[in-house]
């Protein structure tokens, strides 16, 4: 309000009045100015209240989500207690609810996704920030970002009609029989098609852009001097990256991977369409499974009773808490790096 305060003091000051020859004109002018200033004061107050309220919407939304879902899931959590997380009996007909198969499926499918996409995504990020010629960087980065723009349901559609037939007729028999990996429990059993493997593969495609874009940003934030110092010591390009750039960017890249993990844990549609939706724990990746998100997506609209509904809400709450923690950790790590690099370059 400093800009408005200056003229107001002059116009409103009683010292000004005697100096002026006529009393009427400045009084009218002062009144008009006063109205304008008052308008500005009111406008400012309305504006700052409004944006503060808008900003408050975010924490309020967060608290509302947590509360509403917790309250809705409370009956099931109270009835089953801790065994809700450890029991593998998901039997709506008999009113027994244990989320263990869904939690297991969520963790395994996300693990497959990260195991495949992490090296690829970091490779892409290194390629884009260090090796690629200037003209290639934007287009390739755009294509990789586009992977994130494809809707989940489209990945699911593609998975059902293209990926699963290939897995069932070619990849699964190849892994099990030709490579004789069938002796391992992970690659044994009949090849259904809809399976943990299919879900993990589609998830790896879906989380890759998130990991690679965070990694790329973090790599680009590494100060030039870090690279120049290594190069000046006679290091090759790869030695520079491995020895000077990656260690510097490490925690940011880990943050990106954890961010990808958060996406994989909560991904719903593509997984629901590909994982086979069976509440069982099986070591074989060829067997169908369930994830927390797909369990909710599948059973919510035809829940058979209040307890079933409450159990699904409780699963939602568990998913909420897990992704909340994962995302908070990831953000913290990424911020750590960006703040560190900002501090060092300044």
């Amino acid at each position: 309000m400093t800009h408005a305060a200056v003229p107001s003091e002059r116009a409103g000051s009683p010292l000004d009045r005697p100096v002026l020859p006529s009393g009427a004109e400045p009084a009218r002018g002062a009144r008009r100015l006063g109205v304008r200033i008052q308008g500005a004061v009111i406008g400012d107050r309305v504006y700052s209240t409004a944006i503060t309220l808008f900003a408050l919407c975010v924490p309020v939304l967060m608290i509302l989500i947590a509360l509403e879902i917790f309250i809705a899931g409370w009956p099931a959590l109270r009835q089953f207690g801790f065994s809700f997380l450890t029991s593998s009996a998901w039997d709506p007909v008999n009113g027994a609810f244990g989320a263990a198969p869904a939690i297991y499926g969520t963790l395994v499918s996300s693990a497959i996704a990260l195991a495949i996409s992490t090296p690829l995504a970091i490779g892409v990020a290194i390629f884009l920030s260090e090796f690629a010629p200037q003209w290639l960087r934007q287009p390739v980065a755009f294509l990789v970002d586009l992977l994130a723009a494809v809707p989940s349901v489209v990945y699911g559609l593609w998975g059902i009609f293209v990926l699963i037939p290939i897995l069932r007729t070619a990849v699964m028999p190849f892994l099990r029989d030709t490579l004789h990996l069938g002796v391992l429990p992970f690659f044994s059993g009949p090849a259904y098609g809809p399976s943990m493997l299919a879900a993990g593969l589609i998830l790896s495609v879906m989380v890759l852009p998130y990991i690679s874009s965070v990694s790329r940003e973090v790599l680009l934030a590494v100060p030039r001097s870090q690279r120049e110092a290594a190069l000046a010591l006679g290091a090759t390009k790869w030695e520079t990256i491995w020895g000077a750039v990656l260690p510097y960017a490490k925690s940011g890249i880990i943050g990106g991977v954890i961010l990808g993990l958060g996406r994989a844990l909560g991904e719903t549609m593509a997984v629901t369409m590909l994982i086979g939706n069976r509440p069982q724990i099986s070591a074989s990746l060829f067997a169908p499974g369930y994830t927390m998100a797909s369990l909710i997506a599948n059973e919510f609209s035809e829940a058979s009773g209040d307890l079933h509904l409450s159990a699904l809400m409780a699963v939602g709450f568990v998913l909420f808490v897990i992704t909340l923690i994962v995302n908070a950790v990831a953000r913290w790590l990424v911020w750590q790096v960006s703040r560190g690099s900002a501090g060092k370059s300044a």
């Binding site: 939304l61 989500i65 996406r263 997506a297 939602g316 998913l319 909420f320 992704t323 953000r331």
Partner: peptide, 13 residues
């Protein structure tokens, strides 16, 4: 953090 929450959670909310 909200940005990273699963969309299905928004749905049941």
């Amino acid at each position: 953090v909200l940005n990273g929450l699963p969309s299905i959670v928004m749905g049941i909310f």
